[in-house]
Design a protein around this nucleic acid. Structure first.
Length: 359
RNA sequence: UGGGGUGUAGCCAAGCGGUAAGGCACGGGACUUUGACUCCCGCAUUCGUAGGUUCAAAUCCUGCCACCCCAG
């Protein structure tokens, strides 16, 4: 039994509740902390009250103290402002990876220190192992829930002070444990949508922060095929929301390019739109979880370009901080602003923002 | 106002006397801690309109309306 204090981040969902429960096997001094990182500015449905109630209920059953902490200022400055900046520039950001780096594994970690804790824990599905003072991030045992992709920006400092109690646990077991413990959130639906902001109408949400500018939609053949309501509402490979019907072959249309200069959306018809398939990408800065780039400048490994994508074989060429990642199989809709995350089998090597994509 | 053609859901489009295919779009749901993709479900009691024939019409007949084309 470890009597050093550990702080567990609790969202109100089943995962973090069960994570806290599992910690009781090894830790005697556990503190639950609920993070409130988003201030409602509209009169949307506020689920944070309910979530906090659930945290209270679970902590009471576990007989552990709990606190709530507000990082909404940090979230706005270090995550959301960047999120908006990226959209404004035509890219498609991944705020949750940044949120992990900046909030959960930075601000929250510091907060835990102030509470006298040596370590923090979260309900992420991923594993950490250590050997000779080196920490590695590994995929979760439950491959269908593995969230290592979202943790690709972490480093040695964060990993050395983090515990992921659910790393070896299947999601179904998590539900079973929650049920057997009688947790109020045992059957609560998993939350999705941007972390802390939640699920909401993407268009109306974004429009509150960025001005939308209508424009034309052109086919790759140069034909005017429709109107768009603002480039920021679309991402590469997107089908929904184009409103183009009855034209051409009858197949659906997909976004293949955003022309910011002309405020035009370029679309192509058919699933096998060749312009959607790329063969390589470039990241300009890359976070190596080990803390240092591998010695080899040219090597093969696997990669993911989006969450829950099967591993893809790639060849990496390293040029300082710049990485060129070549795909052995062409990839559909690899999008600037998203992350390329490298893996060596179970090991998550790290990730970087996709800067440009080559056909 | 001579000739020909076409009018089926938001768009494209089957149907040619037996009681409205399909696709796209759209809406809802599933999946999902980004954005997407994908999957599932829904989506014309009605076929430009008014009559007529028929047991039965979107399908046949007639008038009208609209649009298109060729002539003028």
């Amino acid at each position: 039994m470890d009597d050093a204090r550990i702080v567990v981040g609790m969202s109100g969902g089943v995962d973090s509740a069960v994570a806290a429960f599992l910690l009781k096997e090894k830790y005697s001094d556990i503190v639950g902390v609920f993070m409130n990182n988003w201030k409602e500015t509209d009169n949307g449905i506020c689920t944070t009250e309910q979530d906090y109630d659930d945290v209270r209920s679970v902590c009471a059953m576990l007989d552990i103290p709990y606190y709530t902490v507000d990082f909404s200022g940090e979230y706005m400055d270090r995550v959301f402002s960047h999120f908006l900046y990226e959209y404004k520039n035509g890219r498609t950001p991944n705020p949750d990876i940044l949120c992990n780096r900046e909030i959960k594994f930075k601000s929250f970690l510091k907060f835990a220190e102030k509470l006298g804790a040596k370590k923090i824990a979260t309900g992420h599905y991923a594993r950490i192992d250590e050997s000779g003072g080196k920490f590695r991030l590994l995929k979760a045992r439950d491959k269908s829930k593995d969230q290592s992709y979202f943790l690709c920006e972490l480093g040695q400092d964060a990993l050395s002070r983090t515990v992921f109690p659910l790393g070896e646990t299947e999601k179904t077991e998590v539900r079973d444990i929650a049920a057997s413990q009688g947790f109020v959130n045992a059957t609560k639906k998993d939350s999705t949508g941007i972390c802390f902001i939640g699920e909401r109408n993407f268009r109306s949400f974004l429009s509150q922060y960025l001005p939308a500018q209508n424009g034309d939609i052109y086919s790759t053949g140069g034909e005017l095929v429709g109107r768009h309501s603002g480039l920021m509402y679309y991402t590469l490979g997107q089908r929904k929301g184009l409103g183009i019907g009855g034209k051409g072959s009858g197949e659906p249309w997909f976004v293949v390019r955003k022309d910011l200069e002309a405020n035009r959306l370029i679309v192509q018809q058919g699933k096998d739109s060749t312009l959607l398939y790329s063969s390589a990408l470039v990241t300009e800065s890359f976070n190596w979880i080990s803390g240092e780039a591998p010695e080899k400048v040219d090597f093969e490994c696997t990669a993911k370009f989006r969450y829950r994508q099967p591993d893809q074989q790639v060849r990496v060429r390293r040029n300082g901080d710049r990485l060129e990642i070549e795909f052995l199989q062409k990839q559909r809709a690899v999008t600037p602003g998203q992350y390329a995350v490298l893996y060596d089998g179970e090991i998550c090597l790290g990730g970087g923002v996709i800067k440009e994509v080559m056909l």
